[in-house]
């Protein structure tokens, strides 16, 4: 079990995270927050790149700084942007990382063949990485994170660069892996986690706002989400009045998806089931980083 206990992180005078307390058990966690909310800071602390200013991070009861190697031995990490050597083949690159992960040469070789097949790169094992597309590189990154069969797998924006087919495959893979390990997925793409995460963690104002299942989180907006059609001419005033979270144009009408505390005033309003996306937009509505975004 991985525990963050009242963890704070400051950079000089700037506080990036404040009093975060979280527990992770086996399963998939979706770490959801807009860019700049402290998501990366939290992840970097979990993978020992940053050290908490206050508080502690415990793995099975021991501080991960004390565990040192022991902790990193059970850790798999895919950074948002990760480095690779252009002139290496995926095989050589993974062999190098296997060495850093303290794996036996033969075990590593076997595992690499296995993993490259799993991520669908078995046909290009001897091609140089500089010839790889963004998606292929990302798959190499995923393979690298799983090399040491980690107990804790932390993935920062893992699906960026993957096409829809690859995304689907990746999600399936995670489901299998999640049986006996902690998987933490950081993303700002809601659909990535919607279908697979057991729990969602939302960070706002440097603090953990929610840590709950998707169903429970969506309940926050139960009965507050509506859809309705509005004449284009009236769209502007409608927008001013209600918090729109989605619009699309259909002929001379606009279909609005919006949030309101009021009970259905207009019979034309259709109450719809809130999605995680709705919650995300609702929670971060006053967040400057979201300004101007549409669905």
């Amino acid at each position: 079990m991985l525990v963050m206990n009242q963890v704070s992180k400051k950079f000089g005078n700037f506080t990036a995270l404040k009093d975060v307390t979280l527990e992770f058990d086996n399963g998939i966690y979706g770490l959801l927050a807009p860019n700049g909310a402290g998501k990366t800071t939290m992840i970097k602390m979990l993978v020992t790149l940053l050290f908490p200013t206050n508080g502690e991070i415990l793995y099975d009861g021991t501080d991960i700084t004390t565990l040192d190697e022991e902790y990193r031995n059970v850790l798999g990490y895919l950074p948002q942007e990760f480095g690779y050597y252009k002139n290496y083949t995926p095989e050589k690159y993974l062999m190098y990382l296997a060495a850093l992960k303290g794996m036996e040469k033969n075990t590593a070789k076997q595992k690499i063949t296995e993993l490259l097949k799993l991520v669908g790169l078995e046909n290009v094992t001897n091609k140089k990485l500089k010839k790889f597309s963004g998606g292929m590189i990302q798959r190499v990154g995923i393979a690298q994170a799983m090399l040491n069969d980690p107990k804790i797998l932390i993935l920062d924006e893992p699906t960026s660069g993957l096409d829809p087919k690859e995304r689907a495959r990746f999600r399936k893979l995670l489901n299998v892996l999640a049986q006996d390990r902690i998987i933490i997925l950081s993303t700002h793409i809601v659909s990535d986690v919607e279908s697979i995460a057991n729990q969602i963690i939302m960070i706002k104002d440097k603090k953990v706002l929610y840590k709950d299942s998707i169903t429970n989180i969506c309940e926050i907006l139960e009965g507050k989400i509506y859809e309705t059609e509005v004449e284009i001419a009236n769209a502007e005033s409608f927008r001013a009045k209600y918090f729109s979270i989605g619009e699309r144009q259909e002929r001379d009408q606009m279909t609005f998806r919006f949030i309101t505390e009021e009970k259905a005033i207009d019979p034309a309003w259709r109450n719809v089931r809130p999605s995680l996306e709705d919650v995300f937009l609702y929670i971060y509505q006053d967040d400057a980083t979201l300004a101007g975004s549409t669905v």
């Binding site: 970097k44 993978v47 020992t48 790149l49 040192d68 190697e69 990193r72 031995n73 850790l75 990490y77 950074p79 942007e81 990760f82 480095g83 690779y84 050597y85 252009k86 990382l97 060495a99 850093l100 992960k101 303290g102 690298q144 040491n148």
Partner: peptide, 14 residues
Amino acid sequence: QNNAITLQYTTMEG
């Protein structure tokens, strides 16, 4: 330059 430090420092070797 290759942005590899984050990966390297999170491996067991660290």
